[in-house]
């Protein structure tokens, strides 16, 4: 299998005044194209921190992350923003949908953001520019074709999470990063959400990195790694 992401000796410390809190202490990890990787670990061990750094929302204290041999830790703020828009999809524990926008608009959002970069769209952009069209297809594929015009407040917890998954996919990212996507919903609904994830992975060959406590989720993953004391345990 092709290697999509290579994480090389990643360190992250938080500083509170003079005290240093070492969270990640040399993470080495490869993520392959089209796999579902589950990261498990005790609460507070640094799973979210790792995911944020992989997703360019935060910078490591030390170490490198390569996406297809491109070192994103060397990117400028501006390049990171663009990279995030093009290559990363996020799903959080709390859906984080924008309350003023309908399901369809929420899903289309990162497509709309991409469309503001006109120059690139003209020069051999391989994506369709109609974010709404794609959003509609995606909502259909997560089973919400009846819910396009609904606002987040009109949706159930499971439905919201499925909208969030569709939203992460709209720009056909290299990887979708999910931080405890079933952490906040009941077991039965979780199953439906997991079905959706699996289906997308199989149909679209979409790479997923999923942080979870949920053993059922890790059962469905291609591979599970454990984060222990700031490192990947073997």
């Amino acid at each position: 299998m092709d290697k999509l992401i290579r994480i090389d000796n990643l360190h992250k410390s938080f500083y509170d005044g003079d005290t240093e809190l070492k969270v990640l202490k040399g993470v080495n990890l490869d993520i392959h194209q089209a796999e579902v990787l589950a990261i498990m670990g005790a609460s507070g061990v640094g799973k979210s921190t790792l995911l944020h750094i992989i997703g360019t929302l935060d910078r490591p204290t030390e170490g490198n992350i390569f996406y297809e041999d491109e070192d994103i830790t060397a990117f400028s703020e501006r390049e990171l923003t663009r990279f995030r828009n093009d290559a990363i999809g996020f799903v959080f524990q709390f859906h984080q949908l924008l309350p003023e926008f309908t399901a369809l608009e929420n899903v289309a959002m990162s497509g709309l953001i991409r469309n503001t970069r006109k120059v690139e769209n003209k020069n051999g952009n391989r994506y369709s520019s109609d974010a709404y069209e794609k959003a509609e297809i995606l909502l259909e594929s997560v089973g919400l074709s009846e819910r396009l015009g609904h606002f987040p407040s009109q949706l159930s917890g499971g439905e919201r999470q499925r909208v969030a998954i569709a939203r992460a996919l709209v720009n056909q990212p290299k990887v979708v990063l999910a931080d405890e996507p079933t952490g906040n919903i009941d077991d039965k609904t979780s199953e439906a959400v997991l079905d959706v994830l699996q289906d997308i992975n199989e149909r679209l060959k979409q790479t997923f990195i999923i942080v979870t406590h949920d053993s059922r989720l890790s059962e469905r993953a291609n591979r599970t790694v454990h984060l222990v004391d700031g490192k990947i345990a073997d």
Partner: peptide, 16 residues
């Protein structure tokens, strides 16, 4: 604030 965080996560720039 949370919306801003999400928009930034989706790739909106500071200018946006």
């Amino acid at each position: 604030t949370r919306d801003v965080g999400m928009l930034r996560t989706l790739g909106a720039s500071r200018g946006h």
